[in-house]
Structures are given as structure tokens and as C-alpha cells.
Design a protein around this nucleic acid. Structure first.
Lengths: 221, 221
DNA sequence: CGATCTTTTGAAAGAGGTCAATTGAAGTGG
DNA sequence: CCACTTCAATTGACCTCTTTCAAAAGATCG
């Protein structure tokens, strides 16, 4: 049997939040009851949170209530990092939980201005994280048709020019992006074509015209 | 029908990579053929990449070849941001692709030392991103049993003390984290119990003892 | 231009979801 | 503090969505 000491795997967290905040420390402790909301998807981001005791879940919801938990945050973990002015997900206490709060601007500096290059990289990584969070919701909780509709909307924003979307990737790439099989992707696209949401251009099936963006959006959640 | 101008949705990318690198610009263009590897999972991270033309996929693999594509990168996108010395995923050109490279240290500064607080936040966000990437692979490509085994391993590292793992979250939370239903999670845990990989402590099913970590790991991919 | 890869479509199989029932744990209010 | 109610977890039976397997037609590439 495997034995190990906990200390090998737990990151040190004594005063990490204080170190992060630097000199302008404005930390305060807060206690949340089981199930209490720490922040909501639309709340303004003003703080960084470090779990002192208890446990927190951060999650995203679909309109019909399907939930994807992004991560569990345990004592020592810092969460609530965000690049915008509003949260893109919610956080709740799983059990009675104590967290230490730090005002965001202490950590980010004048982040809005993004003066220096590190701040720019930070924004870049945060964009990647934001995309990953959206994609976790898709992978964990959306049906095949919803995934393909979401994919087409994403690519429509990036690839459509003069009305035509030219997909550079194969159905296999799409499938491996959406956590599906090639066949399922193909069937979903065919269904959307049969519903007159899109049609193909020429012989290749990589050029697509979206003819009804409103209904395409309705296929997604 | 919805019409829109592309410019509303495409982020500006003229010289963003140059701006990121600041004064010490060491940029150079590179061309990759269809299917060519831009970097591998074990390669050393030295560059930031911005797509000039073409398309790139970044992905993770399981040992048996199952693939999860994290993101598609199109002209203007910057990718390859990482906090360690090695990549945690691979990047390939989907079609013939040109990218602009920038040496990493120009952007991150002396990142290893993490002198200032912004760098610390950057590391924090990158850790979150890394976790999200791992989780996308789980959500997109792992079976129910593999997901639950992976979850138990993750929590074992964080929660096990004096041999017992005390889960603060319910089966519903676990299900919503793993993209499954409560029933499927319960069945998977029962299977692992019946395989003598773990057993419960007391009456509550939130205290678990992992009795065979080697075999638990084998249930995961 | 032949070989290989890609895409589509159908049929069958299977993994996970849904529905339902039971048991047990855990809040809660009198 | 205890009874009551609600919530949490498990298990079985059944169903459905997605996968798997197979075949054919079409595109792409060297």
C-alpha cells in the first residue's frame, strides 16, 4: 500500500494571500453557512478569496438549471480571480466555511489600464481560462446537438466572411473538441441542415452558410 | 435574419504580440505544414505564438489515444502561455499555418522568481487554467468509472488525513463536477467498494478509506 | 490518377440517464 | 431534545442518446 505525508502534496498557504496583496493589505475574514452564496454570476468582482476552513464550489448554470461545477476549493485555495468587472460564475459554501477576503485592486493594481506587459499576459491567460470554463459547461452538461450548435456559433463569429464560414478543421477535430464522435457531429450538422438553419456551399462540407442565426442559437442552451 | 460586421466581434490583433513583448522584441515568423507539430506535451516552453494565417489545435491525449482538443486558434490568437518550463499539451497546425514567435522571457520577465504580486496572480490564474485543461480532458473523453476514480485521487491528495478522506460535498456536487448523474456516481463508487479499492467509515458515506491506491489509479486512464 | 482520408448514413449495441422505491442521515421546530 | 420532515445515497428496472460497427460515396493529396 502507498503511504505518503500530506505535506508533500499540499501547497503552502500560510500567508499567501497577504503576500499577493503586497503592502496594501486589506484582508478580513468572513463566515458563510452551508449553501450560502459567496458571489453570484452577475456580482461585481471586488475581492480575492482564500478558504480558511470549509469548502467552496464554483459553478456555471444553464438556463434550465443544469449545473457544471468548475472546481472545489479547500482550505488554502485562492479563488475568485477574474479579468472583468463581473464574475462569470457563482461560488457557494458547501459546508460552513471561513474565507479571507482581499480587495481586488490591491492584487491587480490598476488592472483596467493594463499598463505593463505582465498585466497583458495576465489578461491573455484569463481569457483562456474563461474559454475553458465555458467549454467545461459544454462538455459536462450539453447534448450533442447543443454542443454542435454552440461550436457553429463560436466559429461563425471567428470565421464567417462574406456570408460563408470556411472551417479549416475536419469533423474529427470538431468531435475531439466537443467530446463526441465524428458520426455524432455529422448527424447533428445534418439535422441542422435539414432544419434549414444552415446549408453547404459547393461539394466540400467545410464551407457552410448559416441562414438562421436566431434558430441556431435556440438549438444551443 | 441577423447581419453583423465582422469587426464587432473580432479582437484587434495587429501588433498585440509586439506590445506584449515590450521593448525587447525578438519576434520571428515560422511556417508549419498541415498536421505539423508546433510543440509537444513534453517540449520546453520558450515561446509565445500568435497565428498569422491558418489554424492551430491545442490538445491533450490519454495513453490509449483518446484526444481532447482544448481550443482552436485562428489568425490573431495568441497561444502557448504556460507557467512551467514544459508544455502541458500539444499544438499542431490544422492547415498550412504561419505563426509569429516571441521568446517567453520577454513577456514574462523573470517569471521563475515571481518577484511582484502581478506575477503571483498570473501564476494563480495559470494554475486554474491548468486544472481546467485537465478537467476538460476528463469531461470530454473519460468514462464514468474513470471520472470517479480521477475525482477520488484528486480528493485523496487534498482531503485524506490519518487515512480517512472526509468529503464535504454531496454526491450531487460530485456528479455536477464530473458531468454525470448522482446515480452514476453512486454506482461507480459502489463498484470501487466491491473491488476492494475503498471502503466507507461509519454510517455516513462521506468518509472513505482508500485501501489500494495503485488499483484506484488503474481505474483512471 | 490511384490511394487514402473524410464525410455521411444506417443498423445494432451499450453506457449512462431517467424513473422509482427504499433506506438512512440530517436539519428543524415545537 | 425528540419527532418530523426533508434531504442524501443506494439500488433496480427500463429507456434513450450516443457510440460502435459497417458500408458507400466523395474529396483530397501525393
Amino acid at each position: 500500500m502507498l503511504t505518503r505525508t500530506k505535506s508533500n502534496f499540499r501547497r503552502p498557504y500560510s500567508d499567501e494571500l497577504n503576500e499577493l496583496a503586497g503592502q496594501n493589505v486589506v484582508c478580513s475574514d468572513f463566515k458563510y453557512a452551508r449553501g450560502a452564496e459567496i458571489f453570484g454570476e452577475e456580482g461585481k468582482l471586488e475581492y480575492l478569496y482564500q478558504v480558511t476552513s470549509g469548502a467552496v464550489r464554483t459553478y456555471k448554470l444553464l438556463r434550465d438549471g443544469r449545473r457544471q461545477i468548475m472546481a472545489f476549493h479547500l482550505p488554502g485555495d485562492i479563488f475568485g480571480v477574474c479579468n472583468g468587472t463581473t464574475h462569470r460564475f457563482s461560488a457557494e459554501a458547501i459546508i460552513e466555511t471561513t474565507v479571507t477576503l482581499t480587495r481586488r485592486q490591491n492584487v491587480f493594481g490598476d488592472f483596467g489600464s493594463a499598463a505593463d506587459s505582465t498585466n497583458r499576459v495576465l489578461r491573455l491567460v484569463t481569457q483562456n481560462l474563461q474559454h475553458a470554463e465555458t467549454h467545461m459547461l459544454l462538455l459536462g452538461r450539453k447534448s450533442a446537438l447543443e454542443r454542435v450548435a454552440a461550436f457553429l456559433q463560436e466559429m461563425d463569429l471567428r470565421l464567417t466572411s462574406s456570408g460563408v464560414m470556411r472551417l479549416p478543421m475536419t469533423r474529427r477535430d470538431i468531435a475531439d473538441y466537443l467530446g463526441l464522435t465524428v458520426e455524432t457531429v455529422s448527424r447533428a450538422v445534418s439535422r441542422l441542415r435539414d432544419s434549414n438553419v444552415l446549408h453547404f456551399v459547393g461539394e466540400t462540407h467545410k464551407q457552410i452558410v448559416i441562414t438562421d442565426r436566431v434558430r441556431l442559437a435556440e438549438f444551443d442552451q
